[in-house]
Simulated assay, not measured.
Amino acid sequence: MTDRDGFAAETGRYRRELLAHCYRMVGSAHDAEDLVQETYLRAWRAYAGFEGRASVRSWLHRIATNVCLTAVEPRVIRLLPSGLAGPSADPTRPPRPVDAAWLEPFPDAWISAPADDPAAVVVRRETLRLALIAGLQHLPARQRAILLLREVLAFSAAETAEILGTTTAAVKSGLQRARARLDELDPQPDDLLEPTDPRARALLDGYIAAFERSDANLLERVLRTDATLEATPFADWQAGRDHCVGLLERYVLGSPGDWRMIPTTANGQPAAVHHRGAPDGVVVLSPTATGVSRVVKFHEPALVTMFP
């Protein structure tokens, strides 16, 4: 076996986990791909000197985390519209685009382990939900890394300190501050349905049918009364079903047949790829037992190519 074969055999099973980790750190699926490539390039260069004092997994995450910390240092954080200001008070006002660094959705297919590869690391979908990713971006980068390493990837405080080149005391303090900040941000409740739940699929099918038929009444039946609607690159977002449906009916739904939507999954949630003649973007839904609680639409045609 060559060194390259040995490297691939030891490190390949962690690629999906590293991709998810980089995405959580930076909030961009495209950037995460580049950061994983850089991680593997650095790991290959250092492989001859790897002595096994740490596990391969820990070693790779140390490289990946530091690659991410370097990448995010000079950048503004990626946000959703709800991270900029409160909801719009006027659903009759046309959506107002703004220039910002926007969060991106993450295709579930990127982390799905092949059925014939029992050694592949399985990534838990709930650790990629949009509410969590959006909240993480508001944390200082090192606090974000500490929380992810400790609570998502389950490294010990000592292992996390080793990965970040700091002390165990600093890790414990950083984790406490990160938890407190996430609690302040009031993320979505934990009652989201899994994308495989028939109720979640029924809500997605209803949402798709409402758009393809231009049926605002069906959309009302899909959304919860307290539903929210936001879409990049627009600053204004809506809270409450009446506001959401009113804006969509006025500016988005169009005529029957204008929209074609393809079901998929993103961020461990039901999603759909939008086409309005040409590729338009991706929408991610937050389904609950009482309806869709949140709709996030990403108006970016380039994102469509990420989804099978």
Results as ranks from 00 to 15, higher is better:
Leu218Thr: 15
Phe307Arg: 15
Leu147Pro: 02
Glu33Arg: 06
Ser293Asp: 03
Ala48Met: 02
Val245Tyr: 02
Arg260Asp: 07
Ala113Ile: 10
Thr127Val: 02
Pro279Asn: 04
Gly27Asn: 10
Val273Glu: 04
Val26Ser: 07
Ser255Ala: 15
Met25Leu: 09
Phe106Asn: 12
Thr11Arg: 06
Pro195Asp: 12
Ala169Asn: 10
Arg78Phe: 01
Ala113Pro: 05
Gln37Pro: 00
Val292Pro: 08
Val282Gly: 09
Arg78Tyr: 04
Arg213Thr: 14
Arg62Cys: 07
Pro256Val: 10
Asp99Phe: 04
Arg199Glu: 12
Glu104Phe: 05
Arg13Asn: 09
Leu223Cys: 03
Ser214Ile: 13
Cys22Phe: 00
Ala302Met: 03
Val171Trp: 01
Ala209Val: 09
Leu136Trp: 04
Leu19Ser: 11
Tyr40Trp: 02
Thr264Trp: 00
Asn267Val: 14
Gly268His: 05
Tyr207Thr: 14
Ser58His: 06
Ala115Phe: 01
Ala210Pro: 04
Gly240Glu: 07
Leu128Tyr: 00
Glu230His: 05
Gly254Cys: 05
Ala210Arg: 05
Ala170Asp: 08
Ala289Gly: 02
Met261Ser: 09
Ala43Lys: 05
Leu139Ser: 09
Leu218His: 12
Arg144Asp: 03
Pro74Ala: 02
Pro87His: 12
Arg53Trp: 03
Gln37Ile: 08
Val284Pro: 03
Met261Ala: 15
Pro91Cys: 04
Leu148His: 06
His61Asp: 11
Pro95Ser: 12
Arg276Glu: 04
Asp197Val: 14
Thr264His: 04
Gly12Val: 14
Leu192Tyr: 07
Arg53Gly: 13
Asp31Glu: 10
Ser112Arg: 15
Glu33Asn: 03
Ala266Asp: 00
Phe307Ala: 13
Tyr14Cys: 06
Val76Phe: 08
Leu19Glu: 04
Ser28Lys: 05
Leu149Lys: 11
Gln238Tyr: 08
Thr288Gln: 00
Glu184Gln: 12
Pro105Tyr: 05
Asp226Pro: 11
Ser255Trp: 01
Glu230Ala: 08
Tyr40Asn: 07
Glu10Ile: 09
Ser173Ile: 15
Arg213Asn: 09
Pro81Cys: 11
Pro233Lys: 00
Glu38Thr: 14
Gln269Trp: 03
Ile77Trp: 00
